[in-house]
């Protein structure tokens, strides 16, 4: 390993997370996942492998679902980061959150934040996705509890509720 005489110094940047800009100082090897959870206290974003093999750590980067375990935090300056903590408006749940809770889309709840963020990006792009589009959109998020069916139903229900209230 090439740690030898390397100077070990933190980087110091501004991060825009859920619309708020925060200063953060962290070791450059830290991924966005680590900085969110360990430096910003946003533990809603989960991790299941840290290798890009499960989707549990998905967050939105400039509106796109990405895996925070493979995004260098140091590369996030100036980009908009959204996590599950930013979904609800005050005490009011996002329609996706409400539908997930109502329709059994969250069992153990561990893959839930990653799927919620992924589904949010989908509905922002396609307000009325078909079942097949939903299946494709969340196919990068492994869930071991639900068999996915109630997740599709919740996304469909959220889409319906969002259209009604629009």
């Amino acid at each position: 390993m090439s740690q030898g005489v390397m100077v070990r110094r933190n980087v110091h940047i501004d991060l825009r997370v859920n619309g708020e800009t925060q200063e953060a100082s962290f070791a450059p090897y830290k991924t966005l996942l680590e900085v969110l959870r360990e430096d910003l206290g946003l533990t809603g974003t989960k991790h299941g492998c840290e290798l890009g093999e499960c989707g549990a750590c998905a967050v939105l980067v400039d509106g796109e679902p990405q895996l925070s375990c493979l995004v260098l935090a140091v590369e996030c300056e100036g980009r908009s980061i959204e996590t599950v903590e930013g979904m609800a408006k005050g005490a009011e749940l996002h329609p996706l959150q409400a539908a997930f809770a109502d329709l059994g889309a969250a069992q153990c709840g561990y893959c839930t934040p990653g799927i919620l963020m992924t589904a949010k990006a989908l509905l922002e792009r396609e307000p009325s996705p078909t079942r097949d589009r939903i299946r494709e959109a969340i196919s990068g998020n492994l869930c071991r509890c639900t068999g996915y069916q109630q997740i599709y139903e919740a996304v469909e229900e959220a889409a319906r509720r969002m259209k009604e209230s629009a």
Partner: peptide, 12 residues
């Protein structure tokens, strides 16, 4: 958590 080793970061 699996972590990256230390490295220097450049962004040209």
């Amino acid at each position: 958590m699996m972590r990256l080793p230390w490295f220097e970061f450049r962004a040209p």
